[in-house]
Design a protein around this nucleic acid. Structure first.
Lengths: 224, 224, 224, 224
DNA sequence: CATGAATGAGGGTTCATTCAT
DNA sequence: CATGAATGAACCCTCATTCAT
């Protein structure tokens, strides 16, 4: 991530190893997320995890110091996805705060949909973390929600939005994004992912947009 | 739910016993909820629970068959509170679906605030339940959300609300209600319970109310 | 040990329980010592210990917090036997430092013979202890050897003994006492316990006694 | 012990390899002794040993079949040092059994001082050995103590020493020699190695020498 | 009713050992 | 020769559950 001096691993062996290491790590992370969503952190034994990932128990400990660190890694993995995708989406949305809000929300939802198993753990299992881990998560969560928060604030300041509690509305958007994962088993019976995003966007913008701007965002509000 | 067949305990001893039994049961339930919110279901040992409730381990098993049943009882306890308070609140709100929605949401929030420890367990620990228990919970949850759902449907049908996806909006309201428990540690820094309810109500009604009715509900939408 | 107010346990149940607790504790301690002498601290699993003592693994943890504490308890148990028997033996030996030395050495040997399994652990396994435990042991060992040390010092000061390094000779006596346990498998082929004590006493007094006093202690030196 | 059949390595490469092999082996042995003294046999993992010796885990298994064999090799290494140095020292001491005893004891102490880390393992970890290994050790220990035993026996037979139990006195001398390693942390605070040897020699000869010969060995007995 | 000593299956974790590279 | 990733048995410990008192 931060290496600059070492241009490329010269030794092909080393490169191959790094690739395999990365692959294993990801494999374990996904297996863990999948299992933990179903049975909860405490409901998943290391043996079960090893079986699911088709490796031995001992190997898991070469990649993650212990079970707690594994959970932390699963969660951090999601949060890093937010950090990677959300700011990019907002930037691509241009200067209009309304478009930015919609883009940010959509990006959040997409990350959650991609990491659906792991995303619920953020809500459910953060209590199983060490204090240290919990703090790390909290910091990342706040940073993660920042683009969305800023866009909302800009929208209010610029008069596009009515005068709402920015913090609360941010919280609402995040809740809705996570809602897709939390109640996925219930929602997917009637909704496709894109419907969910579109409808929720329309709903929230319906609440937020100042009356005089409402007509400007037909393309966002329409499909409800 | 409440036994009706058994007419009345004749023996005053039996009555006293029933009272004590009821009291013990409630004491254990609250102790369990308090502990489990902090440490999670698996983080609370029966011994710790016995200590917290100042009884012996063995006694717990006279009231609840096993640990799973105890968790189930804790959760059912909350859901029963919904069943008790929400319909009453809706009824008291009169015939206007908008008022009904506001009342139902407020009632949900109040139950959650009163049972804040137990409410999070609904989200976090339902995975620790047996399939049977999980199904029971799901059924109760759906029943619980029914008054709210009906009111929303009525609002849409009567033209008070814009044409939204009733199921989704129900889901949103419930999510917001639970949000008060889920992110309580974060929200309470800036918001009182009543502000939370009022602002969320205003926001959602802002989104739902048809333009021609918006002015009729100033008292609900204003305090944003 | 320190109770003074509570004269006797009134409740016979409580008394009975205390007796059983004491008995269990002692049973576990002996089993642990026996096994650990043979296989070493790390060579004995808690399961093996449970089997030997005919109890369940879990029960051991009601009496000793963990395996380390168990080892500590085994060792402390021996050292307490020294503290109980050695000073008494010295006192019973009268005022003559030579008699005191002989009595102290004999007492040491007797404790070691009685706790032969555990005595070797003092030497072999003190490294497996926590720093805290190790310090406790060291303190007790020093205190334990004090009567012997004092008697030797008195003997030198009073001219009964030649001018030796008191600390070193104390160390030698202790080493000889422990030697009975350390090389018991080898020694017992040719020596009874009493011969061992008598011969070692004679040898050491032969080295220590000043020539002019040698004849006074025929009864101690003779049987070599 | 030392191969004699294989005449000489013809190939210079093979010679170089043999040297490196010997060097590696010795390096591993000392690393193992150092680590095991501190943490005990079970407290040292093969990984830790590999790290300490700056080789890979796998390589250790090219030199020693398994961990037990490694421990055995460490211990045998000390015992071979005894076999190498003690007889030589006795021979160099001339024909006088008293001088021989003193020389043998000194040689024992020197070996132990040189191999202090490994010497304690002889006492502490012999229980971790296989029966086979344990027997090998016992045989070597007996053989090792033979020069000392013979000298003592000669001293008694020749009237230089009083009539003592030869086996027991041998045992005492060995115990004293090992005492330097066993309680080194305690003794070194007040004694140098040479003081220890001299004082212990003086003490034991004081006990052993027949009265009519005592004046002949002032140079050995004096420095007490 | 109430207690808490006792059980033992199951969990997380370590580490000696192997083997493909 | 040398490496270190991979294995899995075995360890220590916890805790839901039972039952004699």
């Amino acid at each position: 991530m931060t290496t600059s001096a070492r241009p490329e691993p010269q030794d092909p062996n080393e490169a191959a190893r790094a690739v395999r290491t990365e692959w294993r790590s990801r494999q374990l992370l996904t297996a863990a997320a999948r299992l933990m969503e179903r049975n909860g952190f405490h409901g998943v034994s290391m043996q079960a995890l090893a079986d699911e990932a088709a490796v031995s128990v001992g190997l898991i400990y070469r990649y993650f110091g212990n079970k707690d660190e594994l959970l932390l890694a699963v969660i951090v993995n999601v949060l890093e996805a937010f950090a990677g995708q959300v700011p990019a989406a907002v930037e691509a949305a241009g200067d209009d705060p309304v478009e930015q809000v919609a883009a940010a929300f959509r990006a959040h939802c997409e990350v959650i949909d991609e990491h659906r198993h792991a995303a619920v753990l953020t809500y459910r299992e953060s209590g199983s973390l060490s204090t240290e881990g919990r703090n790390k998560i909290k910091d990342m969560e706040i940073a993660t929600s920042d683009p969305l928060r800023s866009a909302i604030r800009d929208g209010v300041a610029g008069g596009r939005f009515v005068d709402v509690d920015v913090e609360l509305v941010t919280h609402d958007f995040l809740l809705m994004a996570h809602g897709w994962a939390l109640k996925h088993w219930h929602l997917e019976r009637t909704l496709q992912f894109h419907d969910y995003v579109a409808k929720q966007t329309a709903l929230m913008l319906g609440a937020l947009l100042a009356p005089e701007h409402r007509d400007d965002y037909r393309h966002l509000v329409a499909p409800t």
